[in-house]
Amino acid sequence: MRGTGLFIEFLHNRKGAAGLAIVAAFTFMALFAPFISPYNPTSTNPQAFLLPPSPSHPFGTDNLGQDLLSRDLYGAQISLIVGLAAAGVAVAIGLVTGLVSGYFGGLVDEVIMRIVDFFIVIPALVIMIVVAALLGPGLLNVIAVIGFLSWAPVARIIRSMVLSLRERPFVESARANNGGSLYIMFRHIFPNVSSVLYGNAMLAVSSAIFTQAALVFLGVGNVTSISWGGIIREAYTTGALTAGDMAWVVPPGIFIFTLIFGFILIGYAVEEIMNPRLRGGGSG
């Protein structure tokens, strides 16, 4: 009941509806790429390389004669998979560490927060390049690297919320009634951080999508699978970028930023709807 009500409210939120429409469009693109792509994205055609945009190849072809539109459509798959999975990893780690750190405090908190500080100050992209190179290519490796290196901000936000929540009278009341730590954490504290968590999860997805594209562009991770970052990388390495072949570079670039923007919009909408304080409406 409450869930559907919130969803309807979400659709009425302008940011939420726009974000959802964007993400839905890209999800459709990723799922149905095999059916809507005009060509096989990996079939090369020596007769038709580096074609400019034309009715048969709306975005032209690359240096191997592969249809760029088809490759751009397929590229949505990797971005969504890596974005969602890596954000899932980051949020899961951030949530657990944030909860534990904030709830128990003391030495546990000290240790976890110093680790968080470390992960926040290190230049993540550089570490990712090194680690990804060590692990070797592979989708799972990319997901793991991005996930394990981007949980720190989530942990910090969750911790600060837990710090204030654990002093709330309703938590104290549960404690005074023999409520154990695990019970309080999951029954009282977690539901009250979830609104911020969902919002931040959406932001983490956008950041993971961007990081994945950046890694591939820099030649880290699975360069051979079709992804937007990879397409831009190919345009760069073949010199098409410098030659000004816009149809090769601009569409994947726009796709990356639109998808990121879509998740950011959803993130804002989720926070606006689930956080009563941002809704206003007080009087008196």
Partner: peptide
């Protein structure tokens, strides 16, 4: 049992009245 000052902070906003009343029973 304890009753707190702020009736806005002493009840978990995500619990129904039924859940709020059942909690001390279940925990004990």
């Amino acid at each position: 049992q304890i009753i707190f000052q702020d009736p806005y902070a002493s009840l978990n906003p995500r619990f129904t009245v039924r859940q709020i009343l059942e909690e001390p029973l279940r925990l004990n």
